[in-house]
Write a protein that binds this DNA or RNA. Structure first.
Length: 595
RNA sequence: GCGCUCGUAGCUCAAUGGAUAGAGCAUUUGACUACGGAUCAAAAGGUUAGGGGUUCGAGUCCCUUCGAGCGCGCCA
C-alpha cells in the first residue's frame, strides 16, 4: 500500500530555523552596512551569483550615478568601509566597470554547511511570522471526470501547500468543488432514471463523463425531462429532503472518485479539504444584503450588479459583476464573494492564493475589486491569482485524446506509471516485482508532476512522454536517479548516513566548493519559490544541485579516497541526498533509494 | 473594438535591470574495463518576433507594429 499522506515536516522545534542563511545573504548584510555608510541611506548591495566568482556585488554601479562618481571608485570606497571580512571571504576585488567579485573562504563554507546539516530543514528559515494561508486549488466538478485541465491546479497547488507548511505557515487547503447549480436538476433526474445502484456503478468505474453526457443529451432532446430537471433544481434549492439525499449520493460518489485520483497523484487533498460551492449557500443572501446596505448594488436589466472601476465590456460600457441574476438566482461571482468573507472573517487569513487558470484573471480581479470596495478584504490581506497556462499536445493545441476528447486524468496517470514500469524493468531487471511497482509509481507520477512544475507556470507547456521520462535533462527521473546513486554509495560504503553527524566537511576540490555553494542556497531557492509562487524556480535549483553533484561525483572519488577526505565527501553526498529528497518532497515527488 | 497573457538555439525550456543570454534533446568529435555507462568532456548552434524609448547597463521596464492564445452581462 501507499505511504500515508502527511507532509514531511514535523512540528516546529527548537532545532530548526536557527537563523543561518545562505552565504550570499550573509554577504549582503555585510555589504549593506558599508553601502549605507557611504551613501548615507539604505542601499541594496545587489549581491548575485556570479560566473566570475562565488558571488558578485553590483550595488556600486547604481550608487555611482547618484553620487556622480566613477563606479570603480565607489566600489573601492565600499571595500574600504567594509571592515574585516576575512572570516567569510578569501578574496574580495573590484572587477570590470565596478562589480565586486567575492570568493568565499573554504572554512566559512564548511561552517555554514555544518550548520545547515544540523537543521532538519537544511537551513531553510522559517517564515518571520507564521501566516494563515488559504490555497484554493484543484476544484473538479461533481459528476464529471477529472481531466488534464485539473492537473495543473492540483499539482501546483499541492506543491505550494507543501512549501508553505515547510516554512511554518498555517495552511488551509480548499478544494472548491463544483457541487451546486442548475446542472444538478438534470443529474438528479438522470440518477432517478438509471436507478441509484446502476448510477453508483457507473461512478465506481470512473465513467463520469458518460453519466453527464447522457443527462445532458436527454436534457436537450426531451422537453419533459427538461421540465423535470427544472423542477428538481427548485426542489434542491428549497432543501427538499429526498432531493438533497440524492444530491448527496452524487457528491459522495464523486468525492470517492476524486480521492482515488488524489491518492494516485499523491497529493495531500482529503475530504477534510472539501469546500464546495454549496458550502457557501447560507452566506449568499448575506452577501447581497451587505452589499445592498452598503450602497454597492445597482439594478441592471433586472439583475443586482456591482459596477467596478476599470472594467468595461465590448461596447466600452461599464462591465457589471452580477451578484444576483434577473431570476433571483445566484451565480459563481456571489459564491466567490462569500468565500472571501468566510476566509477573512472566520478563518482569519493573511493570504489567499487562487490556483486557477489564466482565463479567470479578469473575474478574479473583479472579485478582488468588489471585496476591497465593500471593505471586506483589508489591505493587509493578500489575494493572489496563481495563474497557469494550458497543457498542449505536440501539435501545440490543447492536449486531447485520439478521439478528440479531453484526456482523463486517471488514464494519463496509469500510462505514466506503465511507461515508467517499462523503463525500470528494462534498466533494472533484478528488482523484485513489488519494488518495481513502487519505483515505477514514484518515477511515473514524479515525471508527470515535475514536467508540470518545472516550467514557468504562466506559460503553456507541451506534454511529451519521452522528454518527461528521460533520465537526462531537467526531469524528475534525473533528480531521482542522482538521489538513488547517492544512496547506492552509502550501501556500498556500508556507512549509516546518520553516523556522519559529527563529521565536519572540508572542501578542497573546486567541484566540492561548487556543490557546497549550491547546497547552501536551498534556503534562498525555497523562499524565492514561495515569494513568486513559482515552483519551477525550485526545480531549476534542484537541477543545478544535481548537476553540481555530477561534477563532484566524476572528479572526486569518495569510497576510494583515504580518510579524512573520504568521510568529508560522504558528508557532501549525504547533504546532497537530503537536499534533493527534501526539495522533491516539497514538489510532492518521492525519491526512491534505488531505481 | 477593448483588455489580459505569451513570443529566447533546429526542438523543449531557463535567465532578481548587471560582465560573453544559459541548460537538455538532436547533430558532430572525443574519453574511460567503470565508487551505478541511466557516464563524462568538447564543438557547433542566437539580430531574445520587428522598430523606437528609458537607463551607466534591457531578453527583462515603457511605447508601437506583427504573430499566437484567451477573456469581455445573468454557465462555472
Amino acid at each position: 500500500m501507499r505511504k500515508e499522506l502527511t507532509p514531511q515536516n514535523g512540528p516546529p522545534s527548537a532545532t530548526i530555523g536557527n537563523g543561518m542563511a545562505d552565504p550570499l545573504q550573509l554577504l549582503s548584510q555585510r555589504f549593506a552596512e558599508a553601502f549605507a555608510a557611504l551613501a548615507g541611506s539604505a542601499v541594496d548591495p545587489a549581491v548575485r551569483p556570479s560566473e566570475h566568482a562565488d558571488a558578485q556585488v553590483n550595488g556600486a554601479l547604481s550608487v555611482a550615478k547618484a553620487l556622480s562618481r566613477p563606479p570603480r571608485d565607489v566600489a573601492n570606497d565600499v571595500l574600504g568601509r567594509l571592515g574585516d571580512v576575512s572570516d567569510m571571504c578569501e578574496t574580495v576585488e573590484v572587477a570590470g566597470p565596478g562589480f565586486v567579485n567575492v570568493v568565499f573562504a573554504a572554512d566559512f563554507l564548511n561552517d555554514q554547511l555544518r550548520i545547515a546539516l544540523s537543521d532538519e530543514r537544511l537551513g531553510v528559515q522559517a517564515a518571520p511570522t507564521s501566516e494563515t494561508v488559504v490555497v484554493d486549488f484543484s476544484a473538479p466538478n461533481v459528476a464529471k471526470e477529472m481531466h488534464v485541465g485539473h492537473l495543473r491546479s492540483t499539482v501546483i497547488g499541492d506543491a505550494l501547500v507543501r512549501m508553505h507548511e515547510f516554512v511554518g505557515n498555517r495552511v488551509i487547503r480548499e478544494n472548491h468543488i463544483g457541487d451546486w447549480g442548475t446542472p444538478f436538476g438534470m443529474l438528479i433526474e438522470h440518477l432517478l432514471d438509471l436507478g441509484e445502484a446502476r448510477a453508483t456503478e457507473e461512478f465506481s468505474v470512473g465513467d463520469l463523463d458518460g453519466f453527464y453526457k447522457e443527462a445532458r443529451k436527454k436534457f436537450e432532446a426531451d422537453d419533459i425531462f427538461k421540465e423535470r430537471s427544472r423542477m428538481r433544481v427548485v426542489a434542491l434549492q428549497a432543501g427538499e429532503e429526498e432531493t438533497l439525499r440524492m444530491w448527496r449520493v452524487l457528491v459522495a460518489e464523486s468525492t470517492k472518485y476524486f480521492n482515488r485520483i488524489y491518492r494516485q497523484l499523491d497529493v495531500l487533498l482529503t475530504d477534510d479539504d472539501l469546500m464546495g460551492e454549496s458550502t457557501y449557500n447560507d452566506l449568499l443572501p448575506v452577501v447581497v444584503e451587505r452589499l445592498r446596505s452598503g450602497g454597492h448594488l445597482r439594478q441592471s436589466d433586472g439583475a443586482d450588479v456591482m459596477f467596478l472601476n476599470g472594467f468595461t465590456n465590448r461596447e466600452n460600457e461599464p462591465l457589471p459583476l452580477i451578484i444576483r441574476k434577473g431570476d433571483g438566482g445566484y451565480n459563481y461571482a456571489t459564491t466567490d464573494l462569500a468565500c472571501v468573507i468566510d476566509r477573512v472573517e472566520r478563518l482569519g487569513v493573511d493570504r489567499m492564493w487562487y490556483v486557477v487558470g489564466a482565463p479567470q484573471a479578469q473575474h478574479l480581479q473583479m472579485v478582488e475589486a468588489a471585496t476591497r470596495a465593500a471593505g471586506w478584504l483589508p489591505a493587509t490581506v493578500e489575494m493572489r491569482h496563481v495563474a497557469f497556462g494550458n497543457v498542449l499536445g505536440s501539435d501545440r493545441k490543447m492536449l486531447k485524446s485520439r478521439s478528440g476528447e479531453s484526456v482523463k486524468l486517471s488514464a494519463l496517470l496509469d500510462e505514466a506509471v506503465e511507461r515508467a514500469r517499462a523503463a525500470v524493468r528494462e534498466k533494472n531487471p533484478d528488482l523484485e516485482a513489488a519494488a518495481q511497482d513502487e519505483i515505477a509509481r514514484m518515477v511515473g507520477i514524479g515525471a508527470v508532476k515535475y514536467a508540470d512544475l518545472s516550467t514557468d507556470r504562466v506559460k503553456d507547456y507541451i506534454f511529451d512522454w519521452d522528454r518527461m521520462l528521460s533520465f537526462d535533462g531537467n526531469t524528475a527521473p534525473y533528480l531521482q536517479y542522482a538521489h538513488a546513486r547517492i544512496c547506492s554509495i552509502f550501501r556500498r560504503a556500508d556507512v549509516a548516513r546518520d553516523s556522519l553527524a559529527a563529521t565536519l566537511p572540508s572542501i578542497s576540490a573546486k567541484e566540492e566548493r561548487t556543490l557546497v555553494l549550491g547546497l547552501l542556497q536551498f534556503d534562498s531557492a525555497v523562499r524565492d519559490t514561495i515569494d513568486k509562487a513559482s515552483p519551477h524556480r525550485l526545480c531549476t535549483y534542484l537541477y543545478e544541485v544535481a548537476t553540481a553533484f555530477t561534477g563532484f561525483y566524476e572528479n572526486c572519488p569518495v569510497l576510494k579516497s583515504a580518510e579524512p577526505v573520504r568521510s568529508s565527501r560522504l558528508v557532501l553526498c549525504d547533504a546532497t541526498a537530503r537536499v534533493l529528497r527534501t526539495g522533491l518532497g516539497l514538489l510532492g515527488i518521492d525519491a526512491p533509494e534505488a531505481m
